[in-house]
Design a binder for these strands. Structure first.
Lengths: 201, 201
DNA sequence: CAAAGGTAAGTGAGCGCTTAGATTCGCCTC
DNA sequence: GAGGCGAATCTAAGCGCTCACTTACCTTTG
C-alpha cells in the first residue's frame, strides 16, 4: 500500500491533479476559449488524448475548478464570520479572508470569476448558487452590524457587494511581483471595509 | 453631399460602426476567443468577408474598441476632477463619473477591462499607458486631499486602486434588468469613496 | 472609368474529441 | 509462486469541423 514504487492508481491521481493545475494556469493566462486541450495536456506532460482519460470534456475541467474554488471560498468566509466576536471584528475577518484568498490564489481566482460564461447552463446555475451563498454571508454580517447599531450605512446590500467587488477585482490586477503583499492588502481592505460600513470608531 | 440618397462613403461608415458595435456585443457576451469573425459579420448584417474591408484583423477590432473606450473614460474622469472644487467634491465627482460609465456602458466596459490579454503586445502596451493615466488622475486627487488635510487614509495609492476596482467590477456584475440604477450606484459609491479616503465630515 | 463597398468561394491550420491498441499492475487461481 | 485476467493509464493517429483570413470578381457612385 505505502510501497515506495508508485502504483497505477497513484500515477492516475497525480496526472489528474496535474491536468487540473495546468488548466487553471492556462485558463487564467489565455481564457477558456483561448486555451486548447493540447495546451493543457502538454503543460501536464501528457499526450492530448490523456485529458479525456480523466475528464469528460474541456468544459468539465472548468466546472471542476469552479466548484472546488467556490467551495473553498465559501467555507473560509463562513468560518471567518462564525467566530464569537463583534460585528466589526467579523466584517474585518471576512474581508481579510476574502482578500487573502484572491491575492494569494489570484490565478485560480481569475478563472473562477471571469471564465464562468463558458460553463454549460446547468453548471453555471450550480456555481451561481455557490456565489449567492458567499454573497449572503457577507450581506448578513453587514446587516447584523446595522441592526445592532455598530454600523451606519444607507444600504447594507450595496455595501456588501462593494466589499466583495474589492476582493474579486484583485484577481484581475494582482501580480506576484508587485510591491503589495497579500497581507498588507488584507489589512488595508479590512480597515477600508469598516470605514465603508460606517463602523463606530 | 447632404443628398437624401445614401452615398457609398456613408454606407461604408455605417457598416464600419455596425461592425464595431457587433464586436463589442459579441466580445462582451462570449469573450474575444469565443467570438468568430462570422458572428460579428452576421450580427452587423454583412458577409464574413466584409469584416476585412473595414478592419485588418479581429485583433484590430478589439484594439479600436479598447482605444476608444479608454479615451472616453480618461477624458470624463479628467474633466470631473478639473473643476475648481474641494478635494471631497472632486473625488466624489470622479467616482460618480467612473461608476456611471461602467454601469451605463457595462457591455463595452466588460470588453475593455477583461479582454485585453488578447491584444498584441504592442497594442497592450498602448492601452496600459491609457490605464496608467486614468489611475494617475484618481491617485493624485486622493493624494491632494491627504496633503491638504481634507482626507485621512494610511495609503492613498491603495485607496485610489480600491475606488477604481469598485467601478471596474461593475462591468462584471451589473445587469440592466437589476434593481439598482446607475445613478443610485454612482451616489452610493461616491459616498463610500469619501468614507474610504477618510474625508472630514 | 477609377475608387470604394461588398460578396461567393475558398485556403491551410488548428480545434475538441474518438478510436484502437500498447503497457502496467493488483489480484485470483491452482 | 507461476501464470493468466481484468481494470486502469496512456498514446499514436486521425476524424469532422470551424477558425481567421484571402482571392477574384461584381456593383455602385462621383
Amino acid at each position: 500500500m505505502s510501497d515506495a514504487r508508485t502504483s497505477t492508481q497513484a500515477r492516475g491521481d497525480r496526472s489528474r491533479a496535474r491536468l487540473l493545475d495546468a488548466a487553471v494556469q492556462a485558463f487564467s493566462a489565455k481564457g477558456f476559449h483561448g486555451t486548447s486541450t493540447r495546451d493543457i495536456a502538454t503543460a501536464a506532460g501528457l499526450s492530448p488524448a490523456a485529458v479525456y482519460v480523466h475528464h469528460r470534456s474541456k468544459e468539465e475541467l472548468l466546472h471542476a475548478i469552479a466548484v472546488r474554488g467556490h467551495e473553498v471560498i465559501l467555507e473560509a468566509v463562513t468560518e471567518a464570520t462564525r467566530a464569537d466576536a463583534t460585528p466589526a471584528e467579523r466584517v474585518a475577518a471576512a474581508v481579510r479572508t476574502y482578500v487573502l484568498f484572491h491575492a494569494r490564489s489570484h490565478t485560480m481566482a481569475r478563472v473562477i470569476n471571469y471564465e464562468l460564461a463558458a460553463l454549460t447552463e446547468e453548471h453555471f446555475k450550480e456555481i451561481a448558487g455557490l456565489r449567492r451563498a458567499i454573497d449572503t454571508v457577507m450581506r448578513e454580517v453587514v446587516e447584523e452590524g446595522v441592526r445592532s447599531g455598530d454600523f451606519d450605512t444607507p444600504d447594507p446590500a450595496k455595501a456588501a457587494t462593494a466589499l466583495l467587488s474589492l476582493g474579486i477585482d484583485l484577481a484581475r490586477w494582482y501580480r506576484d511581483d508587485g510591491s503589495w503583499t497579500p497581507e498588507a492588502l488584507a489589512d488595508f481592505y479590512a480597515d477600508l471595509a469598516l470605514r465603508a460600513v460606517g463602523a463606530r470608531p
